[in-house]
């Protein structure tokens, strides 16, 4: 249990850095910069995962933005939260996304994966903040 706390603490710090960089560069431009060529796109069409999002879905606030470089779940990473708690995302070879809540199907975008996670959480559960 202690390890879990440490891990999510690290994640929170990393999140703050990303938020700070975004604020400094201005939202729209920043995402273009952050996406960068470092991400492995393997010739997939379109942007990696679509634009950043911040919405309320079934009473839950879901937010997401692309992150630079590796991150916990490797290249092409996104920073996604449900009610402020991080939701781990992984990338499939076909370009779709799996969430930590839902490992046996994938979604076309991080937004769809976040909504799917909310569907599976039901009305009375929250994320523990564990990414992996």
């Amino acid at each position: 249990m202690e390890a879990k706390g440490t891990r999510s603490g690290t994640v929170r710090r990393r999140h703050l850095i990303v938020v700070a960089a975004t604020a400094a560069l201005g939202a729209a431009g920043a995402f273009r910069v952050l996406r960068g060529p470092a991400q492995e796109e393997r010739g997939r069409p379109g942007a990696p995962g679509g634009p950043a999002f911040d919405e309320t879905y079934r009473g839950r606030r879901i937010q997401g933005e692309p992150t630079t470089g590796g991150g916990v779940h490797g290249p092409g990473g996104w920073r996604v939260t449900v009610d402020g708690k991080p939701l781990g995302l992984m990338r499939r070879a076909d370009g779709s996304y799996l969430s930590m809540v839902d490992h046996y199907r994938s979604y076309s975008t991080p937004l769809a994966a976040a909504r799917g996670a909310v569907d599976e959480l039901g009305t009375r559960q929250s994320l523990a903040g564990r990414l992996h």
Binding site: R92, A93, L98, H132
Partner: peptide, 16 residues
Amino acid sequence: DHYVSDGENRRRVAHM
């Protein structure tokens, strides 16, 4: 710990 997805550039042993 061993669930690695195939969009990641890492060794996968358990799934996909």
